[in-house]
Each structure stands twice: as structure tokens, then as C-alpha cells.
């Protein structure tokens, strides 16, 4: 049986349907708005209610910033905002992952998890890019370990010593295993 109250999704998306009291079924619903209380506003004072919700399609939008770099935009909005940042447009493999992620809404893990993955891939791309430009990354300086040397020297020395000891032990074990393998092969 046909459900006459079933809304049609395409019609529901029309902007005129939103916040349009004139089109609302207020005349057919007994008691419509009888308990509305403007004082019941937990958003005050963060939100200075001025009725703008009812005018929200008609505001004077600022001039559009020229889109001269690739800007990914959320599919939860119709296009790019009037201004945007131009830092680090998507490039390389991480850029491809980001473009894929932006096919999904902010409401899904398919959006956010690939972006986190892209960030990690981007770190490797950053190393390659540095080397391409003749920059040898200095992880000690970039991690601010000069400050660690200044303020937490004892612990830094201890941690480095532990790291060296573990790495040394791992190398020794691997060498011994390689020797054993060679014996069996012969």
C-alpha cells in the first residue's frame, strides 16, 4: 500500500522547505507553538539569537577567493568556502588518498581514517622531498632534543644507552642466527 506521508527525498532537499514557517503544517496541528518559550535557550550567551536562522539563505556572501590551487571540500557543503587556506595542497600518494577520503562525509570513518593514513604517508614523502631539495633531515634537531639535553640530560643519556643496548643485542642475535643458517646450508 502506498504511504502518502512518506517524504520524497528530492523535495526535502529544496532550500525553501527549511525554516519556512509559512509552509509548515501549523494550521493543521492542534496547539502548534503553544509552549514555545524564547527564554528556553541553553545556548545563551554564546549565541546571540537574532532571528538569523530564518534568514540564513539570504546573507551577503563575501567575494569568492580565486581558486588557484587544488582545494578539497567537504561533501557536506555545496562548494568551497569564500576564503580558504592555500598551504600545502594535496600531492603525491598522500594527496591521492586525501582525494579519495573527501568522497565521503565527515560523518564516516571512510573520511577520517584515510586522512590519518595520508598524514603518515605524507611524512615519508616529506623525507623524500627534503632529500630532493638537498636537505638532510635532522631528527635530533627537529625533535628539539637540544632542550632535552639541557633540561633532562640524565634521562636522555639513559634512554639513548638503553636504545643502543637493545639495537646492539638485536644485531648480535641476528648475526648469530645468520651464522647458524650458513652452517646448515654447508
Amino acid at each position: 500500500m502506498e504511504n502518502r506521508n512518506k517524504p520524497e527525498p528530492d523535495k526535502a532537499i529544496e532550500a525553501d522547505n527549511d525554516r519556512n514557517i509559512a509552509n509548515s503544517p501549523k494550521d493543521h496541528i492542534p496547539g502548534w507553538g503553544i509552549d514555545a518559550n524564547p527564554e528556553n535557550d541553553p545556548t545563551y550567551p554564546m549565541k546571540n539569537w537574532n532571528g538569523a536562522d530564518y534568514q540564513r539563505f539570504n546573507y551577503d556572501k563575501p567575494t569568492q577567493q580565486p581558486i588557484d590551487v587544488e582545494v578539497l571540500h567537504s561533501i557536506e557543503r555545496p562548494g568551497v568556502s569564500r576564503v580558504f587556506g592555500t598551504s600545502t595542497p594535496p600531492t603525491g600518494i598522500s594527496g591521492a588518498i586525501r582525494r579519495w577520503a573527501f568522497k565521503y562525509s565527515e560523518s564516516t570513518y571512510l573520511h577520517w581514517v584515510p586522512l590519518v593514513l595520508a598524514d603518515r604517508v605524507n611524512v615519508i614523502e616529506g623525507y623524500i622531498d627534503d632529500l630532493k631539495h638537498g636537505i638532510v633531515p635532522n631528527p635530533f634537531a627537529e625533535r628539539g632534543w637540544q632542550a632535552e639535553w639541557k633540561y633532562n640530560r640524565k634521562s636522555l643519556v639513559k634512554n639513548v644507552a638503553i636504545g643502543v643496548a637493545i639495537a646492539g643485542a638485536a644485531v648480535l642475535i641476528m648475526k648469530q642466527q645468520n651464522k647458524k643458517k650458513k652452517r646448515y646450508v654447508m
Partner: peptide, 28 residues
């Protein structure tokens, strides 16, 4: 914050609608 969108007009400057294309949950 653009100062013109309905959110800025209501002094929700941290929720501007015209400064962040990548996410709708937060302003630029």
C-alpha cells in the same frame, strides 16, 4: 570569521560558515 554568515551574525565566530571548506564542524 567572515562576520556575515548567520553564525557570525549570532556572534558564533568560532562557527563561521565561510572560512573552512574542508570541514563543516569548525570555522577556519
Amino acid at each position: 570569521a567572515c562576520g556575515a554568515c548567520p553564525f557570525c551574525q549570532q556572534q558564533l565566530f568560532g562557527n563561521c560558515h565561510e572560512s573552512n571548506p574542508q570541514a563543516t564542524a569548525v570555522a577556519g
